[in-house]
């Protein structure tokens, strides 16, 4: 199952992505966008973000610097 999306992407970024597809680094633009989203979601997991916020509060209140 997949969802059709409409989005606006800066020209330069789009061009870079197209070049990667043309050079054969990835199958097509759909795969590239899905991979980019997957990577973003992996590296910005909500639980990690929330843990960092809690660490911030602890540092703010009890840190040394």
């Amino acid at each position: 199952m997949s969802t059709l999306i409409k989005t606006e992407i800066p020209d330069q970024l789009w061009q870079q992505a197209q070049n990667m597809v043309e050079q054969g680094w990835i199958d097509n633009m759909d795969a590239l966008i899905a991979e980019a989203m997957r990577r973003y979601i992996e590296s910005h997991q909500q639980t990690i973000s929330e843990r960092f916020i809690r660490e911030d509060i602890d540092w703010g209140l009890h840190g040394k610097d």
């Binding site: 960092f52 916020i53 911030d56 509060i57 540092w59 703010g60 209140l61 009890h62 840190g63």
Partner: peptide, 15 residues
Amino acid sequence: VAAHGTLGVLVRAIR
């Protein structure tokens, strides 16, 4: 590397 964000800086102002 130690890292903190906006919230940390705001709360640090109390300390």
